[in-house]
């Protein structure tokens, strides 16, 4: 189960604004998502499946050649607070 309080807390931590009138709907949707993810616990696997090489793809590499990074302005555009080029994390919990 997911409670309304948990949704409010997650929204606060994620800096998301949630309108009171969508709260119930979102709580229900989130509960369904968690329930769906929980389904994985019901899987019974008799075979010893080798997951490590399941997609049979190997060695997709970058060459060790520098590509220009994003500009600091772009990197920091959506930050909240912070100064002198740093990101800021405020104490929340």
């Amino acid at each position: 189960m997911v409670s309304k309080e948990e949704i409010i807390k997650i929204a606060k931590l994620s800096n998301l604004f949630l309108d009171e009138n969508v709260m119930e709907e979102i709580t229900e949707e989130m509960a369904k998502i968690v329930e769906f993810a929980d389904a994985i616990n019901t899987i019974v696997c008799d075979e010893d499946i080798e997951f490590d090489n399941i997609n049979q793809i190997e060695n997709a590499f970058n060459e060790d050649e520098v590509v220009e990074s994003y500009s600091s302005d772009e990197v920091l555009r959506n930050r909240e607070g912070g100064e002198n080029g740093y990101f800021l994390v405020r104490r929340r919990v």
């Binding site: 970058n62 050649e65 520098v66 990074s69 990197v75």
Partner: peptide, 23 residues
């Protein structure tokens, strides 16, 4: 190495904060 482990930003030491970054 010249570049980071999973992208091609430089690994150079120092630099202005957050100037060697990409998504």
């Amino acid at each position: 190495t010249n570049t980071k482990i999973f992208c091609q930003c430089t690994t150079e030491f120092g630099g202005e904060p957050n100037s060697h970054c990409c998504p």
